[in-house]
């Protein structure tokens, strides 16, 4: 019968069915195939995009692309890679400190109502458009302070952007620790901190870590808040109050130069290629971490 295994999608034998039943089972099966069209429609652009970017970036992608600074219409992405790492380091530091602290507190200590309001706050902050955060940073950290475009402002703004994601996954990680574990630990006489440190933390760690990685992937791909705060430069900044370059900014600055302007557009495609590679690496490592811990903690989550 078709309902015997609801997850078995295609290929049941319909020969027994007649009349109205055949129509119903036939509709069911046809719809199963039609729905798959949506995947084709969505994944085709993804594959097309990856293909085109590789085609435009790879033929001229050499070691010099990574090691040289961009000069005139030529050169490489060296300063932008360093700038990206610098901004990402700053913002990840800020966001992890705030997000983990707030998330841990919300999950483990906060009274229920406070936790609910805190979660709503994190949720709403995650929904604030990056451009609004960018303009906030531009107004406050660039104009009001008189620092002009600078790396620190970029790091702080991007940090605020990343906070809610880390906050939410940390909260999720600690609330999802099975309650049995907590009761067992407390029944064995451990203090609250011992429970947190010895029991909850190891269980929550992989989720927290994947939250940080995903927030990094999102922060890495942001352009608008950085354009408005970190400005642009094609040299490596010597201190945090100088503007800096970054990979997404490279794409934004060079995407619409016609080919008569030499290397510009290729440079943008190379930056896009590099970004995709980093995002894929971050995504894959999240999966690997999750799988590793899933094996290690097998049976814990029933």
């Amino acid at each position: 019968m078709a309902v015997a295994n609801p997850t078995l999608a295609f290929g049941e034998d319909l020969s027994y069915a007649r009349g109205r039943l055949l129509v119903r089972l036939g509709v069911d099966r046809v719809i199963g195939w039609v729905l798959l069209l949506a995947f084709v429609i969505v994944l085709f652009p993804l594959v097309d995009m990856l293909g085109w970017i590789a085609e435009r970036a790879l033929p001229t992608f050499t070691w010099a692309t990574l090691a040289d600074n961009q000069i005139g219409t030529g050169g490489g992405l060296h300063s932008m890679i360093l700038g990206t790492l610098l901004i990402l380091g700053l913002s990840t530091g800020i966001a992890t400190a705030i997000g983990v602290l707030a998330g841990l507190y919300t999950a483990e200590f906060a009274p229920r109502r406070v936790a609910e309001v805190g979660r709503l706050g994190g949720y709403l902050l995650a929904g604030v458009p990056a451009i609004v955060l960018g303009y906030f940073g531009f107004y406050l950290l660039v104009l009001y302070t008189g620092w002009n475009y600078n790396t620190l402002a970029g790091g702080i703004t991007l940090g605020i952007f990343m906070v809610p994601f880390i906050f939410r996954t940390t909260d999720l990680a600690f609330t999802n620790v099975p309650h049995d574990q907590k009761e067992a630990a407390l029944a064995m006489g451990s203090s609250r901190w011992q429970y947190l440190y010895r029991v909850a933390f190891p269980i929550a760690m992989p989720t927290m870590l994947s939250g940080v990685f995903l927030a990094m992937a999102l922060g890495l791909g942001e352009t608008a808040p950085l354009l408005l705060t970190a400005g642009w430069s094609n040299t490596v900044p010597t201190n945090l109050l100088e503007p800096t370059g970054y990979l997404t900014g490279c794409i934004w600055n060079f995407y619409d130069f016609p080919s008569t302007f030499g290397h510009y557009q290729t440079l943008a495609f190379q930056a896009a290629f590099l970004l995709i590679v980093i995002v894929v690496i971050l995504n894959v490592s999240v999966q690997v971490i999750a799988e590793h811990y899933r094996r290690k903690l097998r049976g814990l989550f029933a």
């Binding site: 705030i98 997000g99 602290l101 707030a102 507190y105 919300t106 906060a110 406070v114 936790a115 309001v117 805190g118 709503l120 706050g121 994190g122 709403l124 902050l125 604030v128 605020i160 906070v163 809610p164 906050f167």
Partner: peptide
């Protein structure tokens, strides 16, 4: 501490 994201907003 829970409300830090809300304060940031």
């Amino acid at each position: 501490i829970s409300l830090v994201p809300l304060f940031l907003l």
